[in-house]
Design a binder for these strands. Structure first.
Length: 341
DNA sequence: AAGAGTTTCAACCGCGTTTAC
DNA sequence: TGTAAACGCGGTTGAAACTCT
């Protein structure tokens, strides 16, 4: 079956949206509601959107609305809890951005995907150092992350205020409270269904592809994490397997770090929710881990590797655990490389 | 001051899935 | 039940913004 080309015909506009186009689209959706993107315009011509001067295909309209114009979108930097949740969910779900986004109200899959690719994946990759016989690498995560940044744009939050930024003015989300009243932007039922099915799948007997879940079996919604932290996350980090600071549990370690951070933040971050903020659970974990203790002894490292593995990969977790237990041959590093692949 | 290098993110693209007929 | 259209997702692209030399 042939697929109809989307935006290749009749001189439909591509590229960045102007404020006028945003307004037209908003006006239309305010009047008619979301959905039916291909038949969106009153004066549809062959399924393309030509609505009072808006020459965009439906697909483009949908994307613009979902990713930018929706009134319930949260703008600005990701907060530390959001960042932590994304890391955790990504470890659990992989690149299923829409599913991850469903756990972060006001954030779009595209936004999360971009944030992951530009911030978090680098952070994670800095954390995962090369693993070889002869070259144990002790990394300073802060340096690894910060030193790499040479040029480049600032984060969205900071550029938004730049009045010289033509894009920021034309692309400014239209403040439109009335849209909220007339357009219901309810959560995607399909995504909810998917989330539930993932949870259900985890409970299926004999399933080897179990998603990583909290001890309660539920992926905690962001709201509860923001108000209560990530208790089950902390529980795991506080377990006896993960006590890199001697007798200090993870929570105590984090508390100590926050105490230190409140005086002088060694992480180079600030209080704006920046990626380098040292005042989050994850940052404490990443930034202040005693790598030398871990790396300098393979035996010690193996324990930590195993203990942390769920952070990076959830698939085939049991098989890897089994392999870990049965693998006493230190020469076979291939079996451990999955952690840092 | 200019250009190179780097980063960010909005938007595009193609494909799998769902829905409508 | 089969086909076509629409939807939705994840990967990719490229312009703009920024820093460094």
């Amino acid at each position: 079956m042939g697929r109809r080309p989307c935006c290749e015909k009749v001189g439909l506009k591509k590229g960045r949206w102007t404020a006028e186009e945003d307004e037209l689209l908003t006006k239309y959706i305010r009047a008619n509601g979301e959905g039916s993107w291909r038949s969106l315009p009153k004066n549809a011509v062959e399924g393309f959107a030509i609505f009072e001067g808006l020459l965009r295909c439906g697909k483009s309209c949908r994307l613009r609305w979902i990713n930018y114009l929706r009134a319930d979108l949260k703008r600005g930097n990701f907060t530390a809890p959001e960042e932590e949740l994304i890391i955790q969910l990504h470890a659990t779900l992989g690149n299923r951005w829409s599913l991850i986004a469903s756990h972060l109200p006001g954030r779009t899959d595209n936004e999360i995907k971009n944030y992951w690719n530009s911030h978090l994946s680098r952070k994670i990759h800095s954390f995962r150092r090369p693993f070889t016989h002869t070259m144990p690498v002790v990394m300073d995560v802060n340096k690894a992350v910060i030193a790499k940044r040479k040029g480049g744009r600032n984060s969205k939050g900071s550029t938004k205020n730049n009045k010289n930024d033509a894009r920021s003015s034309s692309n400014k989300p239209i403040e439109n409270p009335s849209v909220n009243e007339t357009v219901s932007s309810d959560s995607n039922p399909k995504l909810e269904k998917e989330t539930l099915s993932v949870t259900a799948m985890a409970s299926e007997e004999g399933s080897t592809e179990k998603p990583m879940l909290s001890p309660s079996g539920i992926l905690a919604p962001l709201e509860s994490i923001e108000s209560n932290g990530m208790p089950w996350f902390d529980d795991i980090m506080d377990s006896e397997l993960l006590q890199p600071h001697g007798d200090l549990g993870y929570r105590e370690m984090a508390a100590n770090n926050e105490e230190r951070a409140s005086g002088n933040c060694s992480g180079g971050g600030d209080s704006t929710g920046d990626m380098n903020s040292c005042c989050s659970i994850t940052s404490c974990f990443f930034d202040d881990w005693e790598w030398e203790r871990v790396v300098h002894g393979n035996q010690v490292w193996d324990e930590k590797e195993f203990a942390c593995s769920w952070l990076w990969e959830s698939n085939d977790h049991n098989a890897k655990a089994e392999r870990h237990r049965s693998d006493d041959d230190n020469d076979d590093f291939e079996t451990h490389n999955w952690l840092f692949s």
